[in-house]
Computed example of a mutant assay.
Amino acid sequence: MINSKRIAITGLLLVGLAITNSSQASLIAETVQGISVVYDDVTNVTWTADANLLGAMEANAIAQYGNDNGLIQAIINANNGVVYDVLGMYDTGEVFINNNAVGVYNLHSYDFFPGGAVSWYGAEAFIGYLNSINYANSSAWALPLWNDGTHSQGQFGELFYNELNGISGFNIPSNSFFNNINPPQHGAYWASEDVYGTAYRFGLGTGNQQPDIKITPYFGVWAVSSGNIAAVPIQSTFYLFGSVFLYWVFVRNRNAMLINFIPKHKSQI
């Protein structure tokens, strides 16, 4: 007969292990619909495991069709041909959204360069495309947040300095979580924040973030989605398994107590 105390202890150990793993984890590799992603439980965002996803998509399109024209046009079409931003010198018009004037930029093929390099507008357009196709079962993709100019803060800074232990002035450390992590062209990725005519970028070769002209088509786009987009997080599986064990022990012991209280038949006395 299985010892119920041992089962209970096993269940508690499983739950304890899940709690310990959760408290110690920073980056968690996951798979959603066959797509590799990485969850950061500090900033509570999910990164694409492919750090140059657009470049990979372009390469696939070229291998299949001989060019990436169809992909670029699909990205432009997914955004109805425009990107809305802080009104600036490169916009061709303005509209009012929630009583606020925003700029309207008309997308062009030259917002996209070979190898995944894009202007800031191209980066925003690619994000819109990922949301339109519900990439990895998420429609909440965005450019990473930049934070008040402090290099080690913001989503890029947290990833570079804290999760991957990067050092200012040096390339981002090699790791097993991400692939294609070297950004195209000038070694930086666009961030979400933009001001008049400029937007911020984060250099993975230096660990620094600074503004640049938004039409500069030399930087990469790396998408993040809010929260953990994995359908069944690893920790939840441990919690569920441990809870089932504990519930089974409870039911088993309760039934045993009820049996002991049932009066025995005279033939059994």
Rank of each mutant, 00 (worst) to 15 (best):
N137Y: 01
D50Q: 10
E94L: 12
Y65N: 13
G103R: 01
G55W: 02
V95H: 02
W47M: 07
N100Y: 09
V104G: 02
Y135I: 10
V102S: 03
D85L: 10
V86N: 06
S132Q: 06
Y110N: 14
L107K: 00
G128N: 11
A59S: 15
V83L: 12
F113D: 03
N98H: 05
G122T: 13
G115R: 08
G70I: 06
S109Y: 10
G149D: 09
T46V: 07
A61G: 07
A61H: 08
W47F: 15
N67I: 04
V86L: 04
Y65M: 05
Y121Q: 15
S132K: 07
T46Q: 07
A123Q: 01
G128S: 10
Y129R: 04
A136G: 04
Q64C: 01
Y135W: 14
W47T: 07
N98I: 05
F112S: 06
N80I: 05
V118T: 14
A125E: 11
N69I: 06
T92V: 13
A136C: 06
A125P: 14
I62E: 07
A61V: 06
N99L: 13
N80A: 10
A51C: 13
W47L: 07
I97K: 04
V83W: 09
N147S: 11
Y84Q: 06
S132C: 07
N131M: 09
I97S: 02
I75S: 07
V83E: 12
A140T: 14
N134G: 05
N69P: 00
A51Q: 09
A125T: 14
W47S: 09
A78E: 12
L87R: 09
V86C: 02
N67P: 03
N147P: 00
L54K: 03
Y121F: 15
W47V: 08
A142D: 08
N52W: 03
N100H: 11
A59N: 15
D91Y: 02
A101T: 15
E58C: 02
N80H: 12
G128K: 05
Y105D: 05
V95W: 01
A78H: 13
T46W: 02
A49H: 07
L145I: 02
G93N: 11
Y135N: 09
Y90T: 11
N147A: 06
W120M: 04
A59V: 12
I97D: 03
I76F: 06
N77R: 11
G149M: 06
L71S: 01
A49K: 09
M89N: 15
W146R: 04
Y135G: 08
W141V: 03
V82Q: 13
N98M: 03
G66L: 10
N69G: 01
D68F: 00
A74L: 12
T46G: 02
A78G: 14
L87P: 05
H108R: 13
L130I: 12
S139R: 11
S119M: 15
S119R: 11
W120V: 01
Y121R: 15
M57P: 00
W47Y: 15
M89H: 11
Y90Q: 13
Q64F: 03
I72S: 11
A136E: 01
G115D: 05
I72N: 12
N99D: 15
G66W: 08
A125Y: 12
Y129M: 07
G122L: 14
E58A: 05
V104C: 02
D148L: 14
